[in-house]
Lab assay of single mutants.
Amino acid sequence: METPSQRRATRSGAQASSTPLSPTRITRLQEKEDLQELNDRLAVYIDRVRSLETENAGLRLRITESEEVVSREVSGIKAAYEAELGDARKTLDSVAKERARLQLELSKVREEFKELKARNTKKEGDLIAAQARLKDLEALLNSKEAALSTALSEKRTLEGELHDLRGQVAKLEAALGEAKKQLQDEMLRRVDAENRLQTMKEELDFQKNIYSEELRETKRRHETRLVEIDNGKQREFESRLADALQELRAQHEDQVEQYKKELEKTYSAKLDNARQSAERNSNLVGAAHEELQQSRIRIDSLSAQLSQLQKQLAAKEAKLRDLEDSLARERDTSRRLLAEKEREMAEMRARMQQQLDEYQELLDIKLALDMEIHAYRKLLEGEEERLRLSPSPTSQRSRGRASSHSSQTQGGGSVTKKRKLESTESRSSFSQHARTSGRVAVEEVDEEGKFVRLRNKSNEDQSMGNWQIKRQNGDDPLLTYRFPPKFTLKAGQVVTIWAAGAGATHSPPTDL
């Protein structure tokens, strides 16, 4: 069977082979063929449309019947899901209200924590001031004790010197008594010597008188005998007598002179000795008097100093007792304040721990409710997609609110971060928990396990030699990294520990 286009092609070929045509004729024939082709295509399209309309009418009838069946089946399910969705919305509203209440309680707890922290800071300042005052008082007490020990040692030294001076005074008084006794003995010996000298002088005078009498008696006897002796021998006898008398007189005078000289010499020697002894004793007595006077003056001065030191010692002891009493009071006050502060800190920690436990429990309940609501929403969306139902505006708002919801909680030295990733086909969620104590904190952990970043959050360098970082993902083997023995993380510095297959460059001390 030939198509209209094939017939047109045969006809035009025959005409062209029979007679030659002009260009205008050819153009018109071409346009006519195009119109015929378009008409044929339109006829085919109309036939196809008619057949499709016939099929569409049958399909519409089948769809109508199916919609009636589906509407009867879905009406009950939709009512049940609407009821469950209403319950879920009520639960979500109650959870939102509970969350708002918990946020209010958390803000209240934070305000109480700030207030307690301020009070604690003030108490710590008072405690530091009390400890500083206690240290000052202890230093003052130590200085006073040192001064007291010095004063006591000086007192003992002065008492020793006073005892020595008293012994010296006793010795000097004994020496003075001995000197006085020697002086009295010398004076007695001097008086005795003077008496003996006077006696010797009297004896000498008496001997002179006796010698004169004997001489006169001898002259008288000789004169008497001379009268009786011969005149011839008188001159010879007289001359001999005169010579004998002269010789006797000379001898007697020599003896008297020698005895006189010896007596005067002895007397002068004894007198000089007595005078020297008297002068020496008088000098000793003067020196003893002077030394005794000086000793008395020094004793008086030392007694005055001793009394002054005793007064100072009594004042120091009184002040020391006052300082000890004040120190005891300060210690009791400090202990009482410290006990009160520790009790308040313990109560505050217990209260904060209780509130944190309650908040953690409520947060766990909220997370469980969020997971249940998310599961209900997934089931509802799956059924709506299976039944090709359009979601209600309320469910769209709930989905938008659930997809944009995120929370971040800080308290008790722990930080909890939650992130949620969404897509049109599926939804997944993960959470990161970080707890830090000390100078070094974990700043970031790569989700794909490529690196771990640490930061020194203090103002001092931290030695991290032979420290270890351990990481384990589920049931995978435990991964451990040990820092070099001499590694030190500077204040405020960040160090990144890269995985072996991350392709990073080893560049200490920032990249390991």
Rank of each mutant, 00 (worst) to 15 (best):
E178Y: 09
E178D: 15
E178F: 02
A179R: 08
A179G: 01
K180M: 06
K180L: 00
K180Y: 03
K180H: 12
K180F: 06
K180G: 00
K180D: 09
K181V: 14
K181H: 15
K181D: 10
Q182L: 06
Q182C: 15
Q182N: 08
Q182K: 13
L183F: 01
L183Q: 00
L183W: 10
L183H: 04
L183S: 07
L183M: 15
L183D: 03
L183R: 14
L183N: 13
Q184M: 09
Q184H: 14
E186D: 08
E186Q: 08
E186P: 00
M187S: 11
M187L: 10
L188E: 00
L188T: 02
L188N: 02
R189F: 04
R189D: 15
R189K: 00
R189S: 05
R190P: 02
R190K: 13
R190Y: 15
R190M: 09
V191S: 04
V191F: 06
V191M: 06
A193V: 14
A193W: 07
A193C: 12
E194W: 11
E194S: 11
E194Q: 11
N195D: 04
N195F: 05
N195W: 05
R196C: 03
R196E: 03
L197I: 04
L197T: 08
L197S: 06
Q198E: 08
Q198H: 01
Q198G: 05
T199G: 01
T199A: 01
M200I: 14
M200D: 02
K201V: 14
K201C: 11
K201P: 00
E202A: 00
E203W: 00
E203N: 02
L204I: 13
L204P: 02
L204V: 13
L204N: 14
L204H: 11
D205H: 05
Q207L: 07
Q207C: 03
Q207K: 12
K208Y: 02
N209C: 11
N209G: 02
N209W: 04
N209R: 03
N209Q: 06
N209Y: 07
I210W: 01
I210E: 01
I210Q: 04
I210Y: 07
Y211T: 12
Y211F: 09
Y211K: 11
Y211M: 13
Y211D: 10
Y211I: 10
S212N: 04
E213F: 05
E213I: 07
E213N: 10
E213C: 10
E214A: 14
E214C: 02
L215H: 03
L215T: 10
R216Q: 13
R216F: 06
R216N: 07
R216V: 15
R216T: 06
E217G: 06
E217I: 08
E217Q: 06
E217L: 09
E217S: 12
E217A: 13
T218L: 15
T218R: 10
T218W: 09
T218I: 14
K219F: 08
K219Q: 09
K219I: 10
R220I: 14
R220G: 12
R220F: 13
R221W: 15
R221N: 09
R221H: 07
R221V: 12
H222G: 14
H222P: 12
H222E: 15
H222Y: 03
H222V: 13
H222A: 05
H222I: 06
E223H: 12
E223K: 06
T224Y: 05
R225V: 09
R225C: 02
R225F: 01
R225Y: 12
V227R: 14
E228P: 06
I229Y: 11
I229N: 12
I229T: 07
D230E: 03
D230A: 05
D230R: 12
D230Y: 10
D230T: 07
D230W: 00
N231D: 13
N231Y: 06
N231Q: 11
G232F: 08
G232Q: 06
G232H: 09
G232N: 08
Q234H: 10
Q234E: 15
Q234L: 11
R235K: 10
E236S: 08
E236A: 06
E236Y: 01
E236D: 14
E236V: 07
E236T: 10
F237G: 06
F237W: 11
F237M: 15
E238K: 10
E238C: 00
S239I: 14
S239P: 00
R240C: 09
R240V: 12
R240Y: 08
R240K: 15
R240A: 13
R240H: 10
L241I: 09
L241Q: 03
L241T: 04
L241E: 08
L241R: 08
L241S: 02
A242G: 13
A242F: 11
D243L: 10
D243C: 10
D243K: 12
A244I: 08
A244N: 05
L245V: 02
L245I: 00
L245P: 03
L245W: 00
Q246N: 15
Q246H: 15
Q246K: 15
Q246Y: 10
E247M: 02
L248Q: 02
A250W: 11
A250P: 04
Q251P: 05
H252M: 09
H252N: 09
H252G: 00
E253D: 00
D254M: 13
D254G: 15
D254R: 01
Q255L: 09
V256S: 01
V256Q: 01
V256M: 02
E257F: 14
E257S: 03
Q258D: 10
Q258C: 11
Q258S: 15
Q258W: 07
Y259D: 04
K260C: 00
K260Q: 13
K261E: 13
K261H: 12
K261M: 14
K261W: 01
E262D: 09
L263A: 05
L263G: 00
L263M: 12
L263C: 08
E264N: 15
E264M: 00
E264H: 06
E264G: 05
E264C: 15
K265F: 11
K265E: 14
K265A: 11
K265W: 13
K265T: 09
Y267W: 07
Y267T: 05
Y267Q: 05
Y267V: 06
S268F: 07
S268N: 15
S268R: 15
A269C: 11
A269I: 09
A269T: 14
A269S: 09
K270R: 15
D272F: 13
D272P: 03
D272T: 15
D272K: 08
N273T: 05
N273C: 01
N273R: 07
